[in-house]
């Protein structure tokens, strides 16, 4: 465990908590892509099947269980509890365009052709693109509430810190995970445009982020 990894995990946790608390407090999921949240729940489910096969540490187990529970809670709030506030008209990204290539790639490029390894690879590839329905929704409506942008900021920060973690691990442990690093870098690129807007608009005190 290095400082980048820990900070990355904390950012990830903060992002998910921000979203959950926002939905709970405002009793609304307006502007939130339910599709992205379902994809994230699928990411955690397929990746953390290793909870049943290997024990790494108490930290590892607790964080995995917390991520799983919170992602399912978010999906529950959007599609069940506050479903009448769910903005389905603007959440129109076609997820099959993500799922089909991601499923195909995880069968082609993996560390071992076993169900658990294919599912692990699937989760890594899917996480790289899971935010696209949310970014698509913001582009479509042309705006995002600042709290939604804080969520996206911490999610992007988590990805950036994981890259720093891999650079650190490469130099100190000679660890290099090709699948995770390549898709992690791709994923981080999706946030760059958003980061620019976040710094130039939201951090200058705008209540909403309006796209140019």
């Amino acid at each position: 465990m290095n400082v980048f990894r820990l900070a990355g995990d904390v950012s990830h946790l903060v992002a998910i908590i921000i979203l959950l608390v926002k939905i709970w407090r405002s009793k609304s999921c307006a502007g939130i892509s339910g599709k992205s949240q379902v994809l994230f729940a699928l990411v955690f489910t397929t990746r953390y099947l290793d909870l049943f096969t290997v024990f790494i540490s108490a930290y590892n187990t607790i964080m995995k269980v917390v991520f799983l529970a919170m992602s399912y809670a978010t999906v529950y709030l959007i599609y069940m509890r506050f479903r009448n506030m769910y903005d389905s008209e603007n959440d129109t990204f076609r997820v099959e365009f993500l799922l089909v290539p991601v499923i195909g790639l995880s069968f082609l490029e993996n560390y071992a052709f076993t169900p658990l390894e294919i599912l692990w690879t699937f989760s890594i590839f899917l996480e790289a693109v899971a935010i696209m329905p949310q970014l698509f929704m913001i582009t479509k409506t042309g705006e995002a509430e600042s709290i939604t942008t804080h969520y996206l900021f911490f999610l992007g920060l988590y990805r950036a810190l994981y890259i720093a973690n891999w650079v650190w691990r490469y130099h100190t442990e000679e660890f290099f995970d090709q699948i995770a690093v390549v898709s992690g870098v791709v994923q981080t690129i999706f946030y760059c445009d958003f980061f620019y807007l976040y710094v130039t608009r939201v951090l200058r005190g705008k209540a909403k982020m309006i796209l140019p």
Binding site: R5, D9, S57, K64, N165
Partner: peptide, 10 residues
Amino acid sequence: SQELVRHDEL
């Protein structure tokens, strides 16, 4: 090993 590291990262 490399595999354990993968399962260690979240």
